[in-house]
Design a protein around this nucleic acid. Structure first.
Lengths: 184, 184
DNA sequence: CTAGAATCGGAATGACTGTTCCGCTTGGAT
DNA sequence: ATCCAAGCGGAACAGTCATTCCGATTCTAG
C-alpha cells in the first residue's frame, strides 16, 4: 500500500467519524470526502460501500466494548459485574455518541450482526441470572433495548453522575426481579 | 368537500402514520400513497407539502393524547392510570420524534398549542404514589429521565409493540418499589 | 531520472426523492 | 339523465443520493 493511500485512509476514517457524529447516519459521502479533503473515488477505493465505511468505524468501537466486557467476565460477584458493566457503558455513552450507534447495530438492528458484543453481554447476563441477581424472564432483546434507552437518554440530556445513579437504580430494581403480586 | 375526498384524506393519514413509524424520516410519499391506495397527487391536494402531512398527524396524535390524559386523571385505579399513560406516551413518541424533527427542520413550530404533557404526567405520578402503586422515592426528575429514555430508544430503534411491552414491564417493576427485602 | 503502476479527483450514471401538472373520472346537485 | 367542477392517478420535472469510471497525477522501484 502506497504511503499517500494509507494517509488518505486515516483522513477518511477521521472525517467520517466527525460527520457521522454530527449528521447521524444520513451523512453524505460527498460531505465526508470534502471534509477529508479527498475525492469520493478515494473513499470507495478503501471502503466498497457506505455501509462498509460505517462498519469499519463501528467495528472499532465494538472492539473496545468487548474488551470492557471481558474484564468483567470472570469477576467473583456475577450480579455486581453485570450491573457495573451496564453502568459503565451508560456513563461512557454520555461522551461517545458513536458508541450508541455501535450498540444500535449490535443489538436492535438485526441487520449488521456483532456476535462478539452480544456474546459478551449475554455471558454477563446469563451469569448474573444464574446467580439470582437478575430475573430470569429478561432476554437479550429486552436488555439491549433498556441499555440503549439509558445510553440515548444519558447522551441526549447529559445525565449527571447523580441522575444516572438514581435513574439506573430504578431500572436495576426492575431487572432484579418481577414485583411479587401484592395488589395495586 | 366531496365524500370520496374525505375518505381518501383519512386513508392517507392512516397510511402515513404506519409508514412513518416503520421507515422514519426516509419514508417516501410514493409509498404512503401506495399503502393508502391513492395517487401521490391525491395526497398533495389535501396536504400541500410533506411537512404539512406530518403536522396533521402530530396535531391528531396530540389531541388524542390530551383526551387520554384527561380521561385517566380521574380513573379509579391510580396506578394503572399512571402506567398506561406512560406506555401511551412511549408508543406515541415513536411517531412524534420523527415528525417533530421533520417539522423543526422546515421551520415549523410543532409545539405551539401542544398539551402540557409534563404537567399531566406529574399529576398522574403524584396520585399513583399516594395510592402506593409507585415507590415514593421517585421524583419528577428521575421519572422524566426514564420516560425520556424509553421514548428515545423507541424512536431510535422503532420499537415494536411487543418489545415496548416487555421493556416497559421491567421498567415498571422498578418503578413500583425498591428491591424487596423479602423475596417471593 | 524515468517508466509505469498505483492512486487520485471529480464528472457521469442511474436510481431514488418531493413536487407539479394535466387529461380523465366521478360525485352529487339539478 | 345530465352536467361540470371537484377530485383523481400517475407521468413528468428537478433535485438529491450512492456508486462507477477514466484521464490526469503522483509515488516509488530500478
Amino acid at each position: 500500500m502506497r504511503a499517500d493511500a494509507r494517509r488518505n485512509r486515516a483522513r477518511v476514517l477521521e472525517a467520517a467519524e466527525v460527520v457521522l457524529a454530527r449528521d447521524g447516519l444520513d451523512a453524505s459521502m460527498r460531505e465526508i470526502a470534502a471534509l477529508a479533503g479527498v475525492g469520493v473515488g478515494t473513499i470507495y477505493r478503501q471502503f466498497p460501500t457506505k455501509e462498509a465505511l460505517y462498519a469499519a468505524i463501528v467495528a472499532d468501537r465494538q472492539e473496545r466494548l468487548a474488551e470492557m466486557a471481558a474484564e468483567l467476565a470472570g469477576a467473583a460477584d456475577a450480579g455486581a459485574a453485570f450491573f457495573e458493566f451496564f453502568d459503565r457503558i451508560v456513563a461512557y455513552s454520555t461522551v461517545k455518541k458513536i458508541l450508541v450507534d455501535a450498540l444500535a447495530s449490535a443489538g436492535i438492528d438485526a441487520k449488521a450482526g456483532a456476535p462478539d458484543i452480544r456474546g459478551a453481554i449475554g455471558a454477563l447476563l446469563e451469569r448474573a441470572q444464574r446467580a439470582g441477581a437478575v430475573r430470569a424472564d429478561v432476554g437479550m432483546t429486552e436488555l439491549l433495548a433498556l441499555l440503549s434507552a439509558a445510553c440515548l437518554a444519558a447522551q441526549h440530556h447529559n445525565w449527571s453522575d447523580d441522575l444516572r445513579a438514581r435513574a439506573l437504580a430504578v431500572l436495576f430494581d426492575g431487572l432484579r426481579r418481577a414485583t411479587p403480586a401484592t395488589g395495586a
